[in-house]
Design a protein around this nucleic acid. Sequence first.
DNA 1: TGTACATCAGTGAACGCGCGTTCACTGATGTAC
DNA 2: TGTACATCAGTGAACGCGCGTTCACTGATGTAC
Lengths: 225, 225
Amino acid sequence: MKGHMKHGQAFVPPVGSPGDPRSGKGSWVRGKRGYHHGNLSEALIEAAKGLLAEKGPAGFTLKDAAKAAGVSPAAPYRHFKDRAALIGAVSDRGYAQFSEWLREAASAGTDPADAFNRLGEAYLAFAADEPGYYTAMFDAEGVGKTDHDAGAGAFSILVEGLTKAYGAESFGGADPRLIGLQVWALSHGVATLAAAGRLPYGPGVPTAAEILSRGVDALVRGARR
Amino acid sequence: MKGHMKHGQAFVPPVGSPGDPRSGKGSWVRGKRGYHHGNLSEALIEAAKGLLAEKGPAGFTLKDAAKAAGVSPAAPYRHFKDRAALIGAVSDRGYAQFSEWLREAASAGTDPADAFNRLGEAYLAFAADEPGYYTAMFDAEGVGKTDHDAGAGAFSILVEGLTKAYGAESFGGADPRLIGLQVWALSHGVATLAAAGRLPYGPGVPTAAEILSRGVDALVRGARR
DNA sequence: TGTACATCAGTGAACGCGCGTTCACTGATGTAC
DNA sequence: TGTACATCAGTGAACGCGCGTTCACTGATGTAC
């Protein structure tokens, strides 16, 4: 995954100060700082993602996001209709990125069975590494049509990986989508329990990744024949 | 100042009116109605549970709960330290009831394998029938120590059912708790995806219960040997 | 090339609202004598 | 048994706060001539 510049959360230096990230580093369209931010909608999405990750959907406020991006509370309304629209934008990004991760994981290497295992790992890694996205995608109140489509897209990658890995016929007539759904649910369950601190942990206790990978393995093995 | 009889909330019938639920129906401890509610903490928990189910943790307000219970906004503070304490009480109840459901499901009948399957069904049924409890248990911000203990209790019922059904040794040396965790995560995943409307549905599409029961089955079968 | 002007993307103060919570109070209940 | 009194469990008004959002505005930018 590309290291995209972390900008603009929590302690944004005043515009034009020496530490100001708006001084023309990489992802900033304009090298000049000033009255206009230049990349505000991007920065807001990034800030929202961070706040969502940190405080959850309830702890996220538009004003905080604006402050994190270094602008006044009214500025976001130039780019997003309201708070829900901003969260929606985070969710959209999340789904896009999620699908990309899955697609990458599925296409790397040559062995389909390995590819499928990597899919599960990618799922967990995404939930763990991008809690902001994950929260916006699954936890937000406003679940729109876009999300369903995007979710369906990600899901189809999973099912495809499954059939490629094991063959569409190898589940004894069972619809591979059913197994896909089960894998999806298991992944989601592990991810959310882990995020909520509801999974036991400590020495000798399996990690979330182990629980999932061995679970997916057992699930698929048990479903075949 | 005597004119104090007016409670002033929207739809609660005046004290003593024919429709007043405080007229001594069943669960009301006192047959007499009056200034004192008589069973307020109970009523508040019940109201909170309903609101949590209806609107989620974000949509739940203490004032609404008070109104639903037919008392003034200050009254809940006689029984609960603050809003979090009320939600915590709902969560506690939820865990108690949850464990009871699981225990019942596990102990009915004679065949351990059947018993184990019923455990999964009971899990889903609980999440579906008691969304208020489920929300408080897993979704609430304030996850206390009590919850962990109660959750551990419920979990141990699951693991016990598993070992009874299949024998502690039959998982090829794998810790039955690992399989228990996977079953738990799968159940939780199916339940939360279903609650969020994230599971496809329609004619010919498996229900949440089918997804889970067949998934648990595959999981256990795949984990053995 | 310079200048006038339209448009864009910000500002900062203010709004209305509804939340959780506190307050001094009062009506009802239980108890000691 | 009756009565005085302490305690309990409510009331209703008010508070401070921080939210989402709107407003009239202004500085910066892009463009036509």
